[in-house]
Design a binder for these strands. Structure first.
Lengths: 177, 177
DNA sequence: AGACTAGTGGAACAGGCGTTCAACTTTCTG
DNA sequence: CAGAAAGTTGAACGCCTGTTCCACTAGTCT
């Protein structure tokens, strides 16, 4: 039996390797493509390694998505709160970082069915709220919803939108008509 | 071999039964829960029936989600374009019709990975655009994104939001600050 | 009536799955 | 150094999967 998740141990490196291999599988094939065996193949370790550190598939999935959401929220911290910068962030999320963004939204939907994933799914929402400071809460909710919607609609467009096309919409959302 | 999808035939009733059974499975267990066998069980027909009418699982899934999206878009047609009515629609979608709405968003994410599903996924977006008439396109995109975001965030809330709480946010989105 | 097609359904194949087990090596601890 | 704990691994169990095959019935045409 491995030591409990929080405690440090010798196998920390492998733990991380498994986690990042899982994320790569999710990005490539979606949550549906995650199995002990597919993750083990991707990480180049035997199958039993993944079950050793994460007893069930659920544990593995939850650990991966939680960690990924933390990283994504952290990366949003760097974005200046100007319409142009936010538009660029959205364009990148649907373009260069498309796989990662897809993983994030698979987390959303999984969270809708599994309460234990909800704090992780809401992390970037609450981060945004914190960054925006104590503004008008109604406007804040509208902006948050708008950005989420722009992101998800960008994912199902035939071509990822360009930052310049997004910018006026983001501007309208953030600054008001 | 069954007659091609468009042509009428004797087995039309069963076709519909299989489709609606599939939708029930998606609502209950998500897209991941759909298999020839689980659908056949739900519909009370032998396993081979589902493969007879929909040769592959993909065919079945695509037919189901497309049909469901059409129904959902049609139901939105009835909603008056006032903030209060739209807020009520969102609250119901995350409350009473939660399973159906979840199915809709699983379609979204599947569409991100499979281009053939994208027209169906965008159906309600383009319907909204048509209903709204030739307004300011920037505002239109902002409103559409905002409604999508409100919906998806409502799905990962611990309690579905009430229409009264949604109404000012919807109002801000639709009418501007 | 005979031929043909649509529809029905039981059985089976090969393959992937989650998970467990037991044997083994490495590393830490007293 | 001895013993415990942590880590590693191949093999295996039973289950579910997508799909195919084949035998069969019920309607529909000529």
């Amino acid at each position: 039996m491995p030591p409990p998740d929080g405690r440090r141990a010798r196998g920390d490196r492998r733990r991380r390797e498994i986690l990042s291999a899982t994320l790569r599988v999710v990005e490539r094939d979606g949550v549906a493509g995650v199995s002990h065996r597919s993750v083990a193949r991707e990480a180049g370790v035997p199958t039993t390694s993944t079950t050793y550190y994460y007893a069930t598939l659920d544990d593995l999935l939850i650990a991966t998505l939680t960690w990924s959401a933390e990283e994504m929220a952290a990366s949003f911290r760097e974005v200046p709160l100007t319409p142009a910068a936010v538009a660029r962030f959205i364009a990148d999320a649907a373009g260069a970082h498309r796989g990662r963004t897809l993983a994030e939204y698979e987390l959303y939907l999984l969270a809708a069915r599994r309460p234990e994933l909800r704090p992780a799914a809401r992390r970037w929402v609450s981060l945004m709220a914190e960054v925006a400071g104590p503004r008008d809460p109604v406007r804040l909710r509208a902006v948050l919803a708008g950005l989420d919607g722009l992101l998800i609609q960008a994912l199902i467009a035939d071509f990822p939108p360009m930052a310049e096309d997004l910018e006026p919409v983001v501007s309208l959302l953030m600054l008001g008509g």
